[in-house]
Design a protein around this nucleic acid. Structure first.
Length: 563
DNA sequence: CTGGGGACGGGGCCC
DNA sequence: AGGGCCCCGTCCCCA
């Protein structure tokens, strides 16, 4: 009985505890719910305030930008303060859609010319920056200008840039270099020059060539010779003859010109420098010349030159440069084992071109050892290997009728020198200029090592067909060149010419260390080792040293043949 | 060492 | 455009 009472007591206690616990839980939940409701209410209010403020700010910015556009248009000669602020480093370009728009019509903005800007894209706030020459009076009404449009908040809006282009193109059929690189798929024949990492670096060349117009000008004042515009990717070191060169380093984007070293680009007031250094990283460098008419096919696949001197005479003026973003890490390759890179140019595979450019930069010795450099280094006057006096050369010129060609060669030597106006096709390895793509292709075998012509009688291979043909005289024994003074015959004309010095006594190569003279350059070279005391070949039997391998071989045959 | 030839690479020009 | 040729320079080798 007592046990039963104890059980009932415990049961009652348990039920009471349960009730109390449930009540406590309910109370706690209620308290939490109340606090949460209050918290959510506060949050929603804050968010509403934020939205309202943001909207207000956007409206304010839009209003200000419109006012600035209107204020700038009456005289059309003004650099908006905002841009100045940016140029001074007070402002920052934000990422986003960028466009340069310049109307083709009359090469200039007109006062009554509408600026085509799509402002209907809703949430975006756009700044229109009109960049005009500060010295507009001097430049005159025909001065060209740039409009830079910037979106602050807007996301990528392809339609936006199309609108801009349409507006620019609507007026007159523009002799245009209009590049919407980000939104318009370029034909395969158009090198995608924007596939380069780095910051935005737009280079625009204007034919007006005023100082203030060199906002983004890399070209030369010599309008007739704006030959080279190179796009390097990794601080590429181009051939020395490159007159127009753009390369980038990791630090502030600078446009380099071999000729315009003193122009605005080099000054502290250089707007372009201020401009470019303010660009967002991750935006691509762009290089183009305003006169470039891409539709004419003047693109030089080997040099990344956008246009030739002919098209520079044209007056294309509309430029639309859209932002181009880095699209991952494009695979870089320049592998000699692969299809020769220059082959890609016919398909306009410019990424290949650029990639190989870069690949080249990793081994600059290719360029520095290029034949063109070697030729420049071989100054027949300044080296001891040269004919010792002018008489010798004149004599040989007269004898062998090689005057003109010899002189032409001496003059014409390096890349883009001499007759450079017609050498529009540049080797992508050493930048040497050639008159046609086929010549470039042949020349580039120097760099690629390709030898497509193989001898059927031996295993030798040659880069040129005429060399193969010449080589095959070895097998045929053909010696079409006979000496008129003796009965000797030669397979090559040069060999005969060289041989005839035996008869003439001509020794055009003189030693600078002594008075010895030689008929052959190679013999002089060998002789010079006597003066230099250079004896790299050592006899393994007696330790005697020799300057030439052949000397050592002869020595060993004579002295140590038994061994 | 010197003299000289064989062979080849490369550029330029002509047809 | 492409082939062929001329020319120059150079390396290698041999007598």
């Amino acid at each position: 009985m007592a046990n039963c009472d104890g059980v009932v007591f415990h049961t009652q206690i348990a039920s009471i505890m349960e009730v109390l616990a449930n009540a406590a839980v309910v109370e706690i939940c209620k308290l939490v719910d109340d606090d949460y409701a209050v918290f959510r209410l506060e949050m929603s209010q804050s968010q509403k305030e934020n939205r309202a403020l943001r909207r207000k700010l956007q409206l304010l910015e839009l209003k200000v930008s419109r006012e600035r556009v209107l204020a700038s248009r009456p005289n059309s000669v003004k650099i908006i303060d905002e841009y100045r602020g940016i140029a001074r480093g007070e402002g920052h370009f934000t990422g986003g859609h960028r466009s340069f728009v310049k109307p083709a019509e009359h090469n200039a903005w007109r006062d009554d010319q509408p600026i085509s800007i799509d402002e209907g894209s809703g949430t975006s706030t756009q700044h229109v920056i009109v960049i005009e020459p500060a010295d507009a009076e001097a430049v005159g009404p025909g001065a060209s200008s740039l409009v830079k449009q910037e979106r602050i908040e807007g996301e990528e809006d392809p339609q936006h840039s199309r609108d801009i282009q349409a507006g620019a193109a609507a007026g007159v059929t523009p002799p245009v270099a209009m590049v919407d690189l980000a939104t318009t798929p370029q034909p395969r024949t158009r090198p995608s020059i924007m596939e380069v990492s780095g910051t935005l670096n737009a280079v625009l060349k204007s034919e007006t060539d005023t100082e203030t117009h060199r906002l983004l000008h890399t070209g030369s004042d010599h309008g007739s010779d704006p030959e080279r515009l190179l796009l390097g990717r990794l601080g590429c070191s181009p051939a020395p003859d490159s007159k127009y060169l753009l390369y980038e380093n990791s630090s502030p984007r600078t446009v380099h010109s071999h000729q315009d070293s003193s122009d605005a680009l080099e000054t502290g007031n250089d707007l372009s420098r201020s401009y470019t250094t303010e660009m967002d990283p991750g935006i691509m460098p762009l290089v183009l010349e305003t006169q470039a008419d891409l539709s004419r096919g003047d693109w030089n696949p080997f040099s990344s030159r956008v246009c030739s001197e002919e098209c520079l005479d044209k007056k294309g003026e509309v430029i639309v440069i859209d932002e181009v973003k880095v699209e991952g890490d494009a695979p870089l390759r320049c592998n000699a084992d692969e299809t020769p890179i220059w082959k890609g140019y016919s398909q306009g595979n410019t990424s290949d071109f650029l990639d190989c450019r870069e690949g080249l930069e990793t081994s600059l010795n290719v360029a520095t050892h290029s034949p063109s450099h070697a030729f420049r280094d071989r100054d027949p006057v300044s080296t001891s290997m040269a004919p010792s006096d002018s008489h010798g050369r004149v004599f040989f010129d007269q004898v062998f009728n090689s005057n003109d060609r010899a002189r032409d060669k001496v003059r014409g030597g390096g890349a883009a020198s001499g007759n450079s106006k017609e050498k529009r096709f540049l080797c992508m390895f050493c930048n040497k200029g050639f008159s046609c793509p086929q010549k470039v292709e042949i020349h580039q075998r120097v760099h690629t090592g390709e030898n497509p012509f193989n001898c059927t009688q031996c295993e030798k291979r040659f880069s040129r067909q005429d060399h193969l043909k010449r080589h095959q005289r070895v097998h045929t024994g053909e010696k079409p060149f006979s000496c008129p003074q003796c009965e000797k015959r030669f397979s090559q004309a040069g060999d005969l010419k060289r041989h005839q010095r035996v008869h003439t006594g001509e020794k055009p190569f003189s030693c600078t260390q002594c008075h010895m003279r030689f008929a052959l350059a190679g013999n002089l070279k060998m002789h010079l080792k006597v003066h230099e005391g250079e004896r790299p070949f050592t006899c393994m039997h007696c330790g005697k040293r020799f300057s030439e391998r052949s000397y050592l071989r002869t020595h060993q045959q004579k002295k140590h043949s038994a061994v």
